[in-house]
Amino acid sequence: MTSRTVVVLPGGQFGPASPLPMYAGDAAEQRGADVIRVWWDEPDRTLTLTDDERGPWVLPQATRALEGTEGEVLLIGKSLGSYACHLAAERALPAVWLTPNLGSPWMVDGLRRSTAPFLLVGGTADKLWDPVLARELTPYLLEVPDADHGMYVPGRLAASAAVLGQVATAVEDFLDQVVWR
Rank of each mutant, 00 (worst) to 15 (best):
F14S: 09
S18R: 03
S18A: 13
S18Q: 05
P21K: 11
P21T: 12
M22I: 00
M22Q: 14
Y23A: 15
A24V: 06
D26R: 14
A27H: 09
A27L: 07
A28S: 12
A28L: 14
E29F: 04
E29C: 07
R31L: 06
I36S: 03
R37T: 09
V38E: 15
V38P: 13
W39H: 15
W39K: 11
P43L: 07
T46N: 06
L47Y: 05
L47H: 04
L49H: 03
L49V: 08
L49R: 04
T50W: 05
T50V: 05
T50L: 12
D51Y: 01
D52S: 09
R54Y: 05
P56F: 09
W57P: 01
W57D: 10
L59E: 12
L59Y: 13
P60Q: 05
A62Y: 12
A62W: 14
L66N: 03
E70W: 03
L74T: 14
I76T: 00
K78F: 08
C85A: 15
L87P: 05
A89F: 05
A89C: 08
E90M: 02
R91G: 04
L98G: 11
P100Q: 03
S104I: 09
S104F: 10
V108Q: 04
V108G: 07
D109M: 09
D109S: 13
D109W: 07
R113Q: 04
A116E: 11
F118R: 01
L120K: 04
G123L: 11
G123N: 10
D126M: 01
L128F: 13
W129L: 04
P131C: 00
P131L: 01
V132G: 03
V132S: 06
L133W: 13
A134H: 08
A134S: 12
T138E: 09
P139K: 05
Y140Q: 07
L141F: 07
L142K: 04
V144I: 08
V144W: 04
P145I: 02
P145S: 14
D146M: 05
G150Q: 06
M151Q: 14
Y152L: 02
V153E: 00
V153I: 03
P154V: 01
